[in-house]
Design a protein around this nucleic acid. Sequence first.
DNA 1: AGCACGAACGTGTATATGCACTCAAAATCT
DNA 2: AGATTTTGAGTGCATATACACGTTCGTGCT
Lengths: 147, 147
Amino acid sequence: MSNPPLRLSPTECTCFRVRGAARRVTQIYSRHLAPTGLKISQFSLLGFVSAEGPVSIGRLSDLLATDRTTLTRNLNPLLKSGLVERSVSDDKRRHELAATLAGRAMFKRALPLWAAAEQEVRTAMGAKLTSDLHGALERSMEKLATL
Amino acid sequence: MSNPPLRLSPTECTCFRVRGAARRVTQIYSRHLAPTGLKISQFSLLGFVSAEGPVSIGRLSDLLATDRTTLTRNLNPLLKSGLVERSVSDDKRRHELAATLAGRAMFKRALPLWAAAEQEVRTAMGAKLTSDLHGALERSMEKLATL
DNA sequence: AGCACGAACGTGTATATGCACTCAAAATCT
DNA sequence: AGATTTTGAGTGCATATACACGTTCGTGCT
């Protein structure tokens, strides 16, 4: 399987393209979520914390495929606004995180706004392209997981 | 064309997936570029500035599909390390940017490292998936461009 | 019990990202 | 020419991202 020579135009850079797509998509979701005051990352984080009950940073790091130290900081806004609570578990190294009542209420409120964003994106792309994109992303992440 | 009801699992979130992919891919390229001291964004930026000769922030913003104010800040490391120079054009509002000699040399040095990263990613994904991913991303960006 | 190792987490530092706001200069209108 | 609008760019603020390093605590070994 010989590969064609890599052309060096930056648009051929997989990293450049994926990052650009992330920027674009982020903007769209942000616009929809703006009324809640939640950023898209906070929405995801709050969703996982709500769903997973008391959960540690380390586990969240696995679930979200995000660096542990990034999560520590991303949690700050949620802690400050009282949407998430932090407690120490039996293992005193571990910090358990749980959504507060306000947190769960906020997530419920944000959910339809997220759905609207998702719908807008999927409608714009169409069913086929949506499926293609998600499929390609999922398979790519599998292949790149061990690098 | 009725869409199936959106399941609300966060993994069904296009934004979540694209952002996750961007994080993963970024890590891989970063590892390769580390010896140069360049971040992947700086590499892209330096590449465009080198290729486009004297170029304004606004034009770079279009080329890179990145917010103008983000570029202003992303340029700082490159200016500080003397890889890029800033000058004022005839239109005194416009700031022209150009790669210095050191900048062009640095880009040349980084290019094979970028190519190695790109090659590693493409090899891991295989030709078909690479093509699928790029195609899906390109078409998606077209569809989402006007939202 | 005491020690060595690994696990879980936070901090320092640096970059990336973009919205709202402001400033200065060019272009256009009257 | 003078006033208004438009354009190009920087700053303040807040968040997102992750590597290197340090700290604390559990675990297992002797």
